[in-house]
Each structure stands twice: as structure tokens, then as C-alpha cells.
Amino acid sequence: MPALKSNGKCKRGSRSENNEDTYYARNVVARREYQLQYNRVRRATRRKLSKADLAALRENKLQEVEGTRPIFDNTICCRDGAIDPHRSTGMKSREDKELQYLQRRKVALSDEYAYRSDPNAWVSKYMKELSGRIDSELRDIRLYFKEAPDARDSAYWMEAVHGSRRMIALHHQERELIEQGSDIPLLAFQSRMSIPYGNRVNRREFRRLYGF
């Protein structure tokens, strides 16, 4: 059988797919890193947000990726940026008042410990006070569970329970964030990822910790 003549041209696909010198192989790590960063920033949430909230969420994620914004743990708050649709005007008013009280309390404790051997010791005392406020709220809502067992399907009962849930979550969040730095609670609020801002409570984490 006569030998086949070669026309000197390489057939398409003749280059090995495993050739490490290809453009894709040289840039595969960079492409994967870019895709991860893109997903973290542009696909930060699947929930429908207002344009302002979505822009703020993406900006926060971008700053985290670039390392210009501290990354903090806030397990009790949903990090998708969505506002709690069940947060009533009464809940907001109560949370705003509590947040103002906590701000005044932090300033007072910080001033009290300013000239002591450990000026940051006020944080431990503040965290104990937060735990006490959580315990007080839990006692009240558990007593309500016992006194109104037949009202569980009423709108009033559901609002009262959710309001208590949000108040407990507010104190839990404050305790978790203040341990990471005295400026972290404010940073979370400015990032629109905060219970007092109006974000949703992480129901699964809350139920695991507090039982309802």
C-alpha cells in the first residue's frame, strides 16, 4: 500500500489537550479566581432587593474581596441583605430605642474604664449585660408561651413572638460583634447587614440557640 503524502498542514485538534503551554492552561488559576470573585460580588444574593440595597451589598462584597473592609462574623443575621418583611413599625421603634440605649451604655462604660489598667475591660462587662438582657427577654416570651397557649394562630401572638425574636437577635448580634472589635457593630449597620438596620433573623441559627 503506497504511503500517504503529507501536505505539510497540521490537522485541527492534533495538539494535545493536555499541553501545558496552551493559553487556557497558563491562565486557568487566574480565571477560576476571577470567577470566584465575580460570584461573591455580582451574585451576592438571590433575593430581590432595592437598587440601593443591592448596590450597597455588592460594594461591601467588593471591598471584602479587595481587603479594604474587615470581614466579620454575624451568624444571627441573614447576610443576603434582605429586609425583614414581618418587621412592624412597633418592632422598629422598639429596636431603635434599644440601639440608642446600647450606644449610651457603651460610651458610659468606655469612659468608666478609660483610666484603668485595662481600658478595654469594659467590653467584658458590656457583654455580660447583653447576656442579662437576652435572659430577661427569654423569660418574658416563655412566660407568654405558657399564659397564651391557645392564641398561637393569632396575628397578635405571631407579632409578639417575632418582636421578641428580633430583640433577642439584636442583643445576640451586639454581643457577637463587639467581641470582634468595638467598631464592628457600627460597621455592620453601615454595611446594611444588621438586625437594627432591619435585616432578617437567621431563623435556623436562632432556633438552634433559643428554641423558637
Rank of each mutant, 00 (worst) to 15 (best):
D53Y: 05
I178C: 01
N202Y: 01
G163S: 04
L62P: 00
N39A: 12
A82Q: 14
N19P: 05
E137P: 01
W122P: 00
R204E: 15
T22F: 10
N39S: 13
D118T: 07
C78R: 06
L54M: 11
N74G: 06
R104D: 10
S154F: 09
V65H: 06
Y115V: 02
L36D: 13
S154M: 10
L4A: 15
D80E: 05
K5C: 12
D73N: 15
D150E: 14
N202S: 04
P149H: 11
G198V: 02
F145R: 06
R94Y: 06
V201A: 01
L170E: 00
R26A: 15
S182D: 14
D73P: 04
N199E: 09
R12P: 08
T22L: 11
G90Q: 11
S154I: 07
D135N: 13
Q37R: 13
Y210H: 10
R105C: 04
A25I: 02
V29G: 05
Y115C: 03
F72E: 13
P119Q: 10
R133E: 00
L186A: 09
S14M: 14
L62S: 03
R46C: 04
L102I: 03
N60C: 09
T68W: 06
E64C: 01
R94V: 02
G13F: 13
D84E: 07
R79A: 09
E59T: 03
Y101C: 01
Y144M: 03
K146C: 07
E98C: 06
R192N: 10
Q173V: 01
P119N: 12
S164L: 01
R31K: 15
H162E: 14
E174V: 00
W157M: 04
E147R: 12
H171E: 03
D118F: 05
T68R: 12
R43N: 15
D111C: 05
G90S: 12
L36E: 15
G198N: 04
T75L: 07
A114F: 06
Y126W: 12
A151I: 01
S50T: 15
M158G: 05
F145C: 09
S110T: 04
N120V: 08
K92C: 09
S117G: 11
V107P: 00
L138W: 06
W157Y: 15
A3P: 07
R175C: 05
H172Q: 14
E176M: 06
L4C: 07
G211N: 08
K106V: 04
G181A: 11
R142A: 04
L170F: 03
E20R: 08
T75Q: 12
E129P: 02
E59A: 07
Y113W: 13
L130S: 02
R58P: 00
R42H: 13
I195G: 00
R94S: 08
P85K: 13
S50D: 14
Y115P: 01
N7F: 11
S14K: 15
I168T: 03
K11H: 11
Y23P: 04
E137N: 11
G181Y: 12
G132V: 02
A155D: 15
D140C: 05
R139I: 05
K11D: 11
R152A: 03
R31Q: 12
R32W: 14
R192Q: 11
K61F: 02
R204S: 15
E205H: 11
S93W: 08
T22S: 15
E33L: 15
F206C: 00
F72L: 14
